[in-house]
Nucleic acid binder design. Structure first.
Lengths: 316, 316
DNA sequence: CATCTGATG
DNA sequence: CATCAGATG
């Protein structure tokens, strides 16, 4: 089909782009309303792997939408993801764990002896983030250090030799945008400022579900979602003000300008099959290491959650 | 095996009675602690069907533990139960429906154009009862006529030519027996008195989940359940005082003295496979029609709920 | 170990 | 249309 023909990289030519049935992991850009954007094939778009001689680290990040359910589903246990992707560090968001669940899961992570978990204490089974690492960090920190923002288990920071890694789950603005103000006037600025503070010491990498599709290219139906949580003007501006304009680089967009690459598809209406998605998950890095990014990518063939994992290969 | 050998009717002879794997619908009495009770085989224990010349009615009753889930499971839609059992009337308890769910389900009941539903208005998705009938009743009544006891959708009464039929779901006494007092001092007496009032006009049939295992023979582990909701001394006494001593006859027990026949098995620990059950579901009838009962029976092979249906064939 | 709701996304 | 919790049985 024409869709298959354009699977590599090229400008959509008015064909009815959709998922390639032969290679279901291949996500095409859609024809409308984003006509003319570049088709993104996550497999062929990836650069060749770095040789062992080039010192680098491989980071993955995944909003798992409930880690217990994911592990029960057996769609993909963390060990299988490790075998397949050979990551050094895995960042998780929306683990929805309670503190009592953590120990059992920690013990199942063979090869990743360093893992750091934070859970919501204000609402059980809500939010939650973790960093699982093969590399032992120099220091670990939970939350922003602001008690008011630290009851929901939304941030884990680890310090490695060459950079700080933050795994964050930015608050969803919610139905009726009831939490929009909190999000843009409190959480986002606090997180941005915290990153600037850390950056005085070492370069910073922020990954996670930032709950914002930055530009029109980052969402399936921009016109219809102008007042939807995650695509309001306020959130998009906040994303720029608090992160991009502070010097943090959206690594996927830098590597793939004009390319559609979603990381989230709502469960409703089979949105994933028809690629009606959003790009909500990011790797942002300090400007000073932006050129060290070898590859910033999406793994849309990994399911088990409404988000797919994303990856970053960073040269050190 | 000896278990199979004793499958018909006989006294347990110290064999380890359990479910017959060849006929999984066959429920045996257990060896301990009820050694010596009669083994009940629900298939062979049933009398031959009445001829068409003998005027009679066939009633079924079933605590479905959530009707929407049952219908979704496709284990047994009501149409299939109708095809198999050819009942005239089906009484349901714990439908857990909301009023908004009723219309759609009513329309799916081909051949049973008369159906009467009551739902809890105080707690959504809780309790709920219904009578589904091929025969058009002379009158219908919901609840006891006592507003305080009628917010939970626990009782539907229909009047036929020859008897009143009550479909009831007696309140569970709950964890910690927190509702025991309400149950035995308010609900049970009100229901018993209501039945006596109706009986002045016509014979009465009460069916449903009466949430009480009357005697030791009616529960797998009597010693261990003396303070469990459904087997407390208080509930058992209330069952006698308010129903049996008022002249209503436990039709299953009359037909099968000394026979174990459970109608409920908790979902936990595979209680149904090992027949660790309770008899909580009954057909009680006015003394004046007790001899009209042709058959009072259990259908333990019907699953889809933690209760099995029970049946009554009543000569008119 | 099931059902349900209601919150959340 | 998923996850979770908590109530209920």
């Amino acid at each position: 089909s024409s869709a298959t023909a354009s699977a590599h990289v090229g400008v959509s030519e008015g064909v009815d782009l959709s998922v390639n049935q032969d290679e279901p992991w291949t996500i095409f850009a859609h024809k409308k309303p984003n006509d003319g954007w570049i088709v993104y094939n996550p497999k062929t778009m990836r650069p060749p792997p770095l040789s062992k001689d080039t010192k680098h680290v491989k980071l993955l990040s995944w909003n798992v939408n409930g880690l217990r359910a994911l592990l029960k589903s057996k769609k993909l246990c963390i060990q299988q993801l490790a075998d397949r992707e050979d990551f050094d560090v895995l960042c998780l968001q929306e683990t929805k764990l309670q503190e009592k669940d953590v120990e059992e899961i920690k013990e199942s992570l063979h090869g990743y002896e360093n893992s750091f978990w934070t859970c919501s204490v204000s609402k059980l089974g809500y939010s939650g983030a973790a960093i699982i690492s093969r590399i032992k960090p120099l220091s670990i920190r939970y939350g922003l250090g602001i008690p008011d923002h630290d009851t929901e288990g939304r941030l884990v920071t680890v310090e490695f030799d060459d950079f700080y890694l933050l795994c964050g789950y930015v608050p969803n603005s919610g139905d009726g945008l009831r939490r929009l103000t909190y999000r843009i006037t409190e959480w986002d600025p606090s997180l941005g400022n915290h990153m600037k503070e850390l950056e005085k010491l070492k370069p910073v990498v922020l990954t996670g579900d930032l709950n914002c599709a930055h530009e029109e290219i980052d969402i399936y139906n921009p016109a219809g979602n102008k007042r939807s949580a995650g695509f309001t003007e306020e959130e998009r501006e906040s994303f720029e003000t608090n992160f991009l304009n502070k010097g943090f680089v959206d690594t996927f967009r830098k590597q793939h300008p004009g390319v559609v690459g979603y990381t989230y598809w709502g469960y409703r209406h089979g949105a994933r099959k028809t690629n009606k998605g959003w790009r909500l998950d990011y790797f942002l890095v300090s400007e000073c290491i932006a050129d060290n990014v070898h590859d910033s990518y999406i793994l849309p063939d990994v399911d088990g959650s409404d988000h797919s994992p994303i990856g970053l290969v960073l040269k050190l």
